[in-house]
Design a binder for these strands. Structure first.
Lengths: 178, 178
DNA sequence: CAGCTATAGTTGAGCTGTCAACTACTTCCT
DNA sequence: AGGAAGTAGTTGACAGCTCAACTATAGCTG
């Protein structure tokens, strides 16, 4: 009921689309859960933390400003802040004052952090190979890359357009009424 | 350093693979976050809860045994238990004694639950269309389905082989030592 | 039928993520 | 210079997930 009432109605998924959607959703979930489990078992950290360490390890002086790190990972500042706090507790990252901008903070990877990453990397890469790359043909991987890049670009650009509404009245606190 | 030492060394990702992996990871994350956000905004529930409701709505009498529901969704019993508890609080699902097996529990979708699902569905489907189906060509979608089904099947079967180790000594508690 | 063992489901602690405030600094504009 | 608005980052409450432990029932086997 209420399939195609009047105002163009919801564009329901047909059988094939349903099938694609469910397969994609499930495969993606199982894949991520697998990577998380493997990484948790071998390194004791979630995939997002691994990525943070990865970016830091590639950066000059293994140092990045919090906001750059957040932008590179497309993570919210809040998420990054919590994550870095956790990594700091573990002694894998250290925070430093950002010279020239006293609001800023630098995340600096420690030697222990680098060692931990080096130790975690091989089994993580093996996991990614085993469950993803080894399962697909070169053509399928090309297709997957193409599709992923396309979807990513779409989402990244649509992300930029979604936020502004708040910015307009963000600072409208309770003081300075007029 | 330590690229190809002796014991076959880690099979690092080459440039193209790295690119594919990062694109896939990011696209997938952004996509899921988008669906979660949309669903949260329009229906106030996470995607997993939506799926639970979806399966229940398709089941005879809108009723499924907890374990069947968990199996269908490839969710852990724990996860399902917590989720159904929450859905019960909202009045969208009700638990019943399973006739014939006193261990069992049935999850029954309430009329309010069904109404909530019906109300949430259109915007969710729109979101999936907008960010996934509308972005890809028919050929790309075919490829995505093929790849997803393949990865899913691999993971599902490798899942069955990964657990048994526990089963052997699962009941080894602290009592009955000899 | 006694006793393992397996199955069904729940529970609680701990962790990561989101969202919405909040502080503090900087930049721009007049 | 002075004040509004933007930017950087943190924090705390809360929600969902995982894991391990637990209860309770079922089923198998000698």
């Amino acid at each position: 009921m209420a399939e195609n009432t009047q105002n163009q109605g919801p564009r329901w998924l047909n059988h094939d689309e349903q099938r694609t959607w469910r397969a994609y959703l499930l495969a993606t979930r199982l894949l991520m859960e697998q990577f998380e489990r493997d990484l948790q078992a071998h390194a004791g950290i979630p995939l997002t933390y691994y990525e943070i360490l990865g970016r830091l390890s590639e950066a000059p002086d293994r140092t990045l400003r919090m906001s750059h790190l957040a932008d590179e990972l497309f993570a919210s500042r809040s998420r990054l802040s919590h994550a870095v706090a956790r990594l700091e507790e573990m002694g894998w990252v250290r925070r430093e004052q950002c010279p020239g901008d006293r609001r800023g903070a630098l995340a600096v990877m420690t030697d222990e952090g680098f060692a931990a990453l080096e130790q975690a990397a091989p089994s993580h890469v093996e996991s990614v190979r085993r469950h993803l790359f080894d399962q697909l043909t070169a053509a399928q991987l090309d297709g997957l890359r193409e599709v992923s890049e396309h979807l990513r670009d779409h989402l990244v650009s649509s992300l930029g357009l979604a936020c502004p509404p708040d910015a307009a009245d963000a600072t409208r606190s309770s003081d300075t009424p007029s």
